[in-house]
Write a protein that binds this DNA or RNA. Structure first.
Lengths: 255, 255
DNA sequence: CCTAACTCCGTATGCCTTACGGAAATGGTC
DNA sequence: GACCATTTCCGTAAGGCATACGGAGTTAGG
């Protein structure tokens, strides 16, 4: 990655603040950066990130492949723009109500976003771009727990805890949904093929606990698991733990 | 995906149980499936999953590209074999000690595995393969909390909670490490390029809470965050929440 | 000894990103 | 009004990828 690309991408991320630096000479662009980003998001929404390609973005805009590179430096930078863009879709209303409700909203908001744009879970962000919507949301997430009794350091850890957990559960949920919708071989067919081998290879007594638990899960919901319910269960436990942490800190056990 | 590929891959996964069905006619294979899987893991360990290719696996074994396809049906099936293989690296010792310690070990084991094989976090498992090592580990994870007072359904949810959370935190940790080791542009250079733009675009008063929290984090550790410490903090809160759940259930408040 | 079955692999197809350079359009400047 | 620097759009090509197909050579069962 070239340093000028970093500069350029930052400029694109903050384009609403910085304005679009239009060199005035040449022909007008036939599309706008916003259209490119929106088209890219549409492609990713429909086909997922592995099938997302520069060509498909170009096709959707009636442009030819290489023209896209006059709008964005490359594929990974475009994905950075997409991530910040969808982070701006949700409102960040002023926080009110008790702490637990606020934290719940933080988690739920991410949960919804991951389900609206499942490809977010496939983004490699070894060097995350710092864009306006990401920044606003982080500020909003921290504000949700401001004044609750956490230290500054702990505030960051709490937000990371909620985000990380939610991402993990959303991944399971989205994978399950993808599996159900999978073209090619249906879920039923897949199990039909798996069953004879697995029965042969997994005798009943080899997996006593998993066998029992799997049966309970299969009886309760009609699938391997119910991701939404698992998300709720885990979130409740985490919130319990956080509240307890604040109580204990309050009575002086925790510095 | 063809149904015969599913069958074949299941056979490969459970090859130690089922034995290797050797058609006896033709020439002997020059390598073994285990060698292929081990070579593939080595490639992924060194270069990550995006750079992982069938050609590199072949090169490492002194075979030509297309020969790999006589061992495994394709790339995604090979990855399935790799996942199960590394799941078998860790011992699953009998559980002892208090519940909290047992659950900690479950989380720590995954934490370690993700750090030993960071590419695990990049695997798309919309249809997860059920292999022997995955199955054994799941049984072991459930056994860790067997008899603690959870219902069968809740046992699955607890394991999912611990796994999902750990994966989320490990992702942050691994990404941070990758960033630090990134070739091309160093972390320092990256911030040097970012800083002037961000200062211009993020005035001090626009992000009061993030600004304060970011400063606290920067002062405490020398980076954006300390993933290991965040993992510990979150895990402790989760374990608190789970213990509290059991206590409350015990006194009859929860059905 | 013959031949079915199997391994190894060369070739080709059709994706992908992106470097490079050319043609055409546009607006500022003389 | 003419010129030209700048910019857009895009054709081409290089180099990567997975994998379908078929051929050559090897092996063991009949």
């Amino acid at each position: 990655m070239e340093s000028q690309d970093i500069d350029r991408t930052l400029g694109l991320l903050w384009r609403r603040t910085l304005g679009t630096p239009q060199g005035s000479r040449g022909p007008k662009q036939r599309a706008t950066i916003d259209e490119v980003v929106r088209a890219a998001i549409a492609v990713a929404d429909e086909e997922g990130l592995p099938a997302f390609s520069m060509r498909k973005v170009a096709d959707r805009l009636g442009l030819k492949l290489m023209s896209i590179y006059t709008y964005v430096p490359g594929r990974s930078e475009l994905i950075g723009l997409m991530v910040d863009e969808v982070a701006g879709e949700q409102e960040l209303p002023p926080h009110k109500g008790p702490l637990r409700q606020r934290m719940t909203r933080v988690a739920e908001q991410l949960w919804d976003e991951f389900h609206r744009h499942p490809w977010l879970l496939q983004v490699e962000n070894s060097r995350p771009w710092i864009g306006p919507n990401i920044s606003d949301r982080y500020e909003w997430q921290l504000a949700a727990i401001e004044g609750a009794g956490f230290t500054d350091l702990q505030m960051d850890q709490v937000v990371t805890l909620l985000s990380g957990f939610t991402a993990g559960m959303a991944r399971a949920s989205v994978d399950a949904r993808r599996t159900a919708e999978r073209s090619g071989i249906s879920d039923a067919e897949w199990w039909e093929i798996n069953a004879p081998v697995l029965e042969r290879v997994m005798p009943a007594d080899a997996y006593p606990v998993s066998g029992r638990v799997g049966q309970a899960a299969g009886a309760e919901y009609n699938a391997i698991g119910d991701p939404e319910r698992t998300f709720r269960f885990g979130l409740d436990r985490i919130l319990d733990g956080l509240e307890q942490f604040l109580t204990v800190a309050d009575t002086g056990d925790h510095r």
